[in-house]
Design a protein around this nucleic acid. Structure first.
Lengths: 212, 212
DNA sequence: TCCTGTGAAGTTCTTCACAGCC
DNA sequence: GGCTGTGAAGAACTTCACAGGA
């Protein structure tokens, strides 16, 4: 059954993103319908997992046939909130911040970078790839005026904690953090950490512990 | 009890990285011992979780006192394989690849970028930040000569699948993939995906579904 | 007293297996 | 025959709660 927004696990939501990518890919390949088995095969999930995930939100499939691809794409985009434009700000115009500002995957997925913040006088009050660069002191004002909803943190480690705190205080509820700083945040916020060092460290762990 | 390398869940390994960061931080603060409660508090885990994770690998704590910080740092570094140098290659010298090549967190954690691969004649056969840049055709030869163990993928989407396949064929067993491509890989390999769009999509999901 | 280490209990997530429909 | 949707079973992970040592 369907359509509750209660208690969907994060892992399910993350898989929806992956299913969506697979659906777009198979649409490009000219397919009309796709089965849970095929979605699973392309991503190394079980078919039951795929069906269970989708059934959290409704009955989208046709028995004996599978899922109508273009329809399911629309459905998943709506579920994930990709049917609207999100206003994103990047904090820190270093190498990583610059790379993220240029990243094609963002714009194409309705994540629109409308502001960059930095503290370097040489960077501030100019534009970078047509995106205005503001001094971080302008945070609250710009966030209010531009209705920024999502922050991406790519500042140096030593200023990360303070930056995140100010972003929380400014009321930006969605935060993607590329730094190592960890900051407590209110329940109604969502803060996700991407930890490059941590990823490599678990790779290192498994490389030395997979005996064989 | 202790010290089996059986069946440690990925989530435990990933938390070890986080504990390690916390330990280094508290060492800098001048602490000698730290309790599971304090480690938990700084990262939003329960104390029992911290103790259970650590107890997978041995009895490192002192009852009534906690964990001796510098000792536990050494222990975790050994467990995670950070007591050796890892040779890393970056594939794709675009904005992201360049940012990763410069990233301080890598070198300081024993991940040494010893080669960059690209196909652009303007970039190949030069150095970038003192790291030699090779044409991707040289993959097998360079991997063998430099004993590269870990690959970071930052190539454009359309060449990603083929690149990853060639890296697998070349026998690099640890792969960190920043592209959207998904490729099946042998069991003894470890391939981790960092999906920026996916992270933002789950933020988007929770922003619209946290009623309140 | 304080804090660890850990069985047992509890919770959450995944897979199984099959009824029902195309 | 093929495939979905789903309750039930199973597996995996987390928390509880307490014995025991510093």
């Amino acid at each position: 059954m369907a359509n509750t927004l209660r208690a969907i696990p994060l892992s399910t939501v993350e898989r929806l993103s992956i299913y969506l990518r697979t659906l777009r890919e198979s649409l490009v390949e000219g397919m009309d319908f796709i089965s849970s088995t095929e979605i699973g095969k392309r991503n190394d999930f079980t078919a039951a997992q795929v069906r269970k995930d989708l059934s959290c939100f409704g009955n989208f499939g046709i028995k004996g046939t599978g899922y109508q691809i273009s329809e399911l794409i629309n459905t998943l985009e709506t579920i994930l909130g990709l049917d609207r434009e999100w206003k994103v700000a990047i904090f820190g115009l270093g190498k990583l911040g610059g790379a993220l500002a240029c990243y094609k995957g963002l714009k194409s997925a309705r994540f629109n970078v409308v502001a960059i913040f930095d503290v370097d006088p040489k960077k501030v009050d100019k534009t970078y790839k047509n995106i205005p660069v503001y001094h971080s002191d302008m945070l609250k004002k710009v966030v209010r005026e531009k209705k920024i909803q999502i922050a991406i943190i790519a500042v140096p480690t030593d200023s990360a904690k303070a930056t995140i705190q100010r972003i929380i205080d400014a009321g930006i509820k969605g935060i993607l953090n590329f730094t190592e700083a960890r900051v407590p945040y209110p329940d109604e916020y969502i803060l996700k950490n991407v930890n490059l060092a941590g990823e490599l460290e678990s790779i290192s762990y498994y490389l030395i512990h997979s005996d064989l």
